[in-house]
Design a protein around this nucleic acid. Structure first.
Lengths: 331, 331
DNA sequence: CCGGTTGCTGCAACCGGTTGCGGCGGGACG
DNA sequence: CGTCCCGCCGCAACCGGTTGCAGCAACCGG
């Protein structure tokens, strides 16, 4: 491994001059500068990040902590953040809680390794987040935490749009498949939907669910948790929604004929085979969330301690329609 | 931030003794050891990783480089690797190519940051991989590279099983939806399937596809690329397969009645609503691949420079069945 | 009672960039 | 021709753990 000193010796200058030729080129005479830079490139110099970090106290690295790496929801967030980081010459450490709500604990273990932490944690107590923020720059995603830089998709407003869409189609009894208990954002979404539906004289029935995957949707379709006069369902995860769509159709329940299905993210909502997107869903700007949070952490100015909301967009697809005129007792 | 020296001073010992009390406890007297350890815990000592790395030359970090973070296929691999790393006290750097085949380039930029690189790159030239391996310990996933530690799911054998399953059901004309050109593993899979099908007197038609997602499947279902007498389709991605299933059914093509559909991974193949898994698919041990590769990189013994194949498992689902007795001209 | 061994601790060097500060040489100006 | 200034460069300290080596005390056997 070629060190700075090797290049310096080859160029006939001191370590300090070589260092400056690379990091503060304006402080070095043109001839020297070019000779050092040329030799550095030729010899394949790679500056030791640990040595630099030891002196400067900055690692050029941001830690990203997510609840799960297998949940496709977090992929785009990580991708957006990672892209932003590499654009500014940084790197990304990654850690997933995988079980239990250990995100804050994990973040603490990364303290010395990173200049900042990008945290996605739907359920950790706010107090612990604020405490962590006193020790390292923090950006929180998908969680509006007062006094902390937070970047959230405005899905509460979005489910309002979804609810309005369904109400306008004529639905009054609507089911909502929420996430595991304790997600602060899910609660806001449910409240937003409740408001709309109640105002219109309808009713929203809420059930929880464990994992946001296809299987959950299939199971719900098989063991229908809602009353028979529910004519539309909103799922907080598009994979659940997709599972519902497939499962319902397999059981002979037409979607959207007999049952409308909509989702709060757009991961599985892509595409159209010529007749519009498959699922009616909310386009959630996941990559943009990651990007913005990462930018806040690498920026020279400390991130503003406030909640930044990024809008969602209603994607009308083929999975919602007017309710069936009569609501016979079906499965 | 509490440094080792602070703890040493508080304990009334030198830095060296404090350091040893924590990392080589057997070398210090019991009383001293406990005092240092207690104070370290009480004061919240956090050893500076950069300082340690500078002297020891080891960072305790492994870099994981994948083509994409949004592709759900890589999530489980990363999760498996990350779990293994944290189990051994390590950390994970992550980088995604996101566009173009820049994986090797990215890995090189991480040279000084990590003790090893876990690389998932279906298309980078083998030569570059071997060259990179001379500079840093490398483990390759899903790519059998001779002379390098490689961990691959034995999907060629697996598609053999899939093909056999379809042949046994009576299918003779089978379609295969492969990935973007240039994936070395996909070629092996196609060859394996071809062998089986030809031997049985059948024929395998291969088409490529760009992105392994639902949308691609929907599009293919809408613009059917295979001959009308094809009665079964295998897709290299379960999301494509799922898209095919949905799209075909929407067009009135019964699955599996008129068309059987199978997939080479199990990501979207979960679940059953009581009547077996939705998709016939290959269970691919993605987390295990990540885990094994990570273990090879953190292990005290250097990883053996050989290909480790991990078996797949055929999951019989509801998307495959016997071909329709007649093969009328359909859509 | 003495030489040797063992157990524990401290000193100081070391890892490799970064940067404050001082020095040196040349040009400008009086 | 002398002085001052400025541009450029090198010396050395520094970041904070880690570890080779030496020193010191206690304990052993002879």
């Amino acid at each position: 491994m070629i060190r700075l000193e090797d290049v310096a010796r080859a160029a006939g200058v001191s370590k300090s001059t070589a260092s400056r030729a690379l990091s503060r080129p304006d402080l070095v005479a043109a001839g020297t500068r070019e000779k050092v830079q040329r030799l550095a490139a030729e010899m394949g110099l790679s500056l030791n990040p640990a040595a630099r970090a030891l002196f400067t106290g900055r690692t050029g690295t941001v830690a990203m902590v997510v609840p799960s790496l297998t949940n496709p929801y977090f992929g785009p967030i990580l991708a957006g953040a990672q892209r932003e980081l590499s654009a500014s010459g940084g790197h990304a450490l990654i850690s997933s809680a995988s079980d239990g709500d250990r995100e804050v604990e994990l973040a603490a273990s990364l303290l010395g390794h990173a200049d900042g932490v990008l945290l996605v944690t739907p359920r950790a107590p706010e107090e612990r987040l604020r405490e962590l923020a006193t020790r390292i720059p923090l950006a929180v995603i998908d969680r509006p935490v007062p006094e902390l830089p937070a970047y959230v998709a405005d899905t509460p407003r979005g489910v309002g749009l979804l609810a309005a869409h369904l109400l306008e189609l004529g639905h009054r009894r609507i089911g909502y498949v929420g996430g595991p208990d304790g997600s602060s954002l899910d609660r806001l979404r449910i409240d937003a939907a409740q408001d709309r539906v109640r105002t219109a004289g309808g009713r929203l029935d809420v059930v929880g669910s464990e994992s946001p995957d296809l299987d959950t949707g299939l199971r719900l379709a098989a063991h229908w948790p809602f009353d028979d006069d529910v004519t539309a369902v909103v799922a907080y995860s598009s994979y659940i929604a997709l599972g519902l769509l497939i499962g319902l159709r397999e059981r002979g329940v037409e979607v959207p004929g007999r049952m409308s299905v909509a989702a709060v993210d757009h991961l599985a909502a892509v595409g159209g085979n010529g007749s519009g997107p498959l699922l009616t869903a909310l386009r959630v700007p996941l990559e943009e969330l990651g990007r913005a949070a990462a930018a806040a952490l690498v920026g020279s100015t400390p991130a503003p301690a406030e909640v930044t909301r990024i809008g969602t967009e209603l994607l009308l697809g083929r999975s919602t329609g007017a309710p069936a005129p009569r609501s016979p007792r079906g499965t």
